[in-house]
């Protein structure tokens, strides 16, 4: 699963969903809420010492709703290994690499792992 990378990334601001088609055929749909709750930046994760390569389990149950914090303003590719996201509240420190994004996939099959 180390070499899995996106072949297509689609941020849909009207459905508030980030869709990723992966090179192994899996497809992931991330509600913007989940993406924000799972922001991998140091300040959201309580400092560098708490940072792991995978999201914390709590992020899957956080309900933030449709607020500026969960409205995606901008999404950009960072080289060929990650995307960075900027939110309407101005927060823009999260860099979501492929490994982290794949681990953040909320689908049932991935959550049962």
């Amino acid at each position: 699963m180390n070499d899995v990378r996106p072949v297509q990334i689609r941020a849909n601001k009207s459905e508030r969903i980030l869709g990723i088609e992966w090179s192994d055929g899996h497809s992931s749909r991330y509600p913007f809420e989940l993406l924000r709750a799972g922001c991998p930046c140091a300040s959201c994760r309580g400092g560098h010492e708490n940072m792991r390569a995978e999201p914390d389990e709590e992020v899957f149950s956080v309900k933030l709703g449709d607020v500026p914090e969960t409205r995606l303003r901008k999404i950009e590719a960072v080289g060929a290994y990650a995307v960075s996201v900027e939110w309407e509240d101005g927060h823009h420190y999260g860099i979501y690499n492929w490994h982290y994004l794949r681990a953040l996939c909320p689908c049932e099959a991935c959550r049962q792992k």
Binding site: I9, A11, N12, G79
Partner: peptide, 8 residues
């Protein structure tokens, strides 16, 4: 960036 990247 060897993937298709779309923002709707």
């Amino acid at each position: 960036a060897a993937f298709i990247f779309t923002v709707i």
